[in-house]
């Protein structure tokens, strides 16, 4: 294998690794944004202030995913330190 090919392979792996890292970070951020949205809209189930009735009632029929997100968040909250370490790949 020529040096040039080795550099190309290294660059390809490096690029793939960074892309994967970036995607993971973006996915984590998206998941957190979705959790915040779920907390703001249906957080009244756990005692948070709820949006005004008109806003809450208008979107309630489309919030099925947000219910799932909140249920999953409960599992995460049982081991929040582990979850945080997982985000940063710390074993």
């Amino acid at each position: 294998m020529s040096i040039w090919q080795k550099i190309k392979d290294f660059w390809k792996n490096f690029d793939q690794f960074n892309r994967q890292n970036y995607v993971e970070m973006q996915q984590q951020e998206l998941a957190e944004l979705e959790t915040i949205f779920a907390l703001l809209t249906i957080g009244n189930f756990i005692g948070l202030p709820n949006p005004p009735s008109h806003v809450a009632l208008e979107i309630i029929s489309a919030l099925d995913k947000e219910f799932d997100i909140l249920v999953n968040s409960v599992e995460k909250s049982l081991d929040s330190t582990g979850y945080l370490l997982g985000i940063f790949d710390i074993d």
Partner: peptide, 21 residues
Amino acid sequence: LDKLISLRKKIKQKREILSQI
């Protein structure tokens, strides 16, 4: 509505970035 819409738009934008990648 202003705050929820801005958060929702950010979520939508993130989903689009991820699908692009």
